[in-house]
Design a protein around this nucleic acid. Sequence first.
DNA 1: ACCGTAACCTACGGTCTCGTAAGTATGGCA
DNA 2: TGCCATACTTACGAGACCGTAGGTTACGGT
Lengths: 238, 238
Amino acid sequence: MAIDSSSTNDGSKGKTSRPAGPSGSAAAPGGRRARRVRMTGAERREQLLDIGRTLFAERGYEGTSVEEIAAKAGVSKPVVYEHFGGKEGLYAVVVDREMRQLLDMVTGALTAGHPRELLEQAAFALLDYIETFTDGFRILVRDSPVAQSTGTFASLISDIATQVEDILGLEFKARGFDPKLAPLYAQALVGMVALTGQWWVDARKPKKAEVAAHLVNLAWHGLGNLEPKPRLIGHRKN
Amino acid sequence: MAIDSSSTNDGSKGKTSRPAGPSGSAAAPGGRRARRVRMTGAERREQLLDIGRTLFAERGYEGTSVEEIAAKAGVSKPVVYEHFGGKEGLYAVVVDREMRQLLDMVTGALTAGHPRELLEQAAFALLDYIETFTDGFRILVRDSPVAQSTGTFASLISDIATQVEDILGLEFKARGFDPKLAPLYAQALVGMVALTGQWWVDARKPKKAEVAAHLVNLAWHGLGNLEPKPRLIGHRKN
DNA sequence: ACCGTAACCTACGGTCTCGTAAGTATGGCA
DNA sequence: TGCCATACTTACGAGACCGTAGGTTACGGT
């Protein structure tokens, strides 16, 4: 029960999140015969989180063993227990960080005024998250230890959908539509973007910005009035 | 390696798929002291598939044990091994049937002419599947034993999306759009419907037909031109 | 040079689960 | 009635995994 949630910020500063230290099996001696690595507590902790994220992403929670994580970190099991109190503890921290990250990015994007712009920003934000933190996205999509309830993708999606809901609700009222339908439309929009993102993770064919543009095209104009060559309003480079 | 795929038809004839026999823990003596049930081979097989589907749906593949399935059927483990050669065998048959069922329903719906009608039919078909075979849908959404690759929800979604793709591709060509974009739009549409369905499984607030109508509304007219009170073209009752 | 503390290890207990070997009951049919 | 295939059981081996007890090594300050 010593799950440590500690710092809320991610702490990763590398490009994709990899810290500086070796996260391989520690069997490759670098230059100076650095026998055992003996990291500092925080370093090891970050490394374990990193490896855990990767493994959970590709094998799921139940398919990943603590020993595997430890082994990949070049360390023995008790180290993991020291840091996170157990498998669930580690998983909890990984998921928590990932949810925070995603929510921050998406919420941060939901500030503009015009709904179409909102949509555009949000879609781009999600794609951006998926591109930058692919493993995290895979984990969030997978199942959690205790099955559904809190912490699932569904609940996360709902969190996001709820925000979209509020915005849509206002817009619906202003336009004279039934605001009770906002949840449905919010869910549909989020689902559209989320699953397209899931598809785009594997087949990264059109560029991120282009995908976002087309999503907005579909969501805003509908199949009946698609624009042949949609462009994003906000011009970005990355 | 004695996985038995046997008959391709479902074989279930009851309303929701429950066979006649008792699928509880077999501890409740009916009227005449029916000590042990001693079903026929096929009956037991169906019962095991049924129980397996339920358990896999609520606990996932790895979270479900063969003993649990056997116990719930009022039978011992080797019976399961006799029928399906192992846990994966049973799971495979369950998933296979479920995918067939869903694909049949959706594919069957993708025959009409006008794309808008297609969309409507397909959306309704998926919702119908979800309502009728909720457990199956839950299984398909969850993860598979060997992680991704074939058999995942993603791959199933892709199967469906591919069909939508073809249809969209033709339509795009006819309208002068780039048919290379068909996959993207197909994915977005399927995702929209699928995730809305996933949401609707829990909060069944608007009726199925109404949900379908709104989905079509969004997908066809877009947020910019929503109709206040969308109605389905084909009028159905169930 | 010493010593305390933080980082880390080996070894093991206990539990769970898959899968199998070998034996028992049961119901229909000659 | 007696046979025999089919349905089903008990019992167990083997392995994986979680989590912990208790001991060991190296680093940093003094």
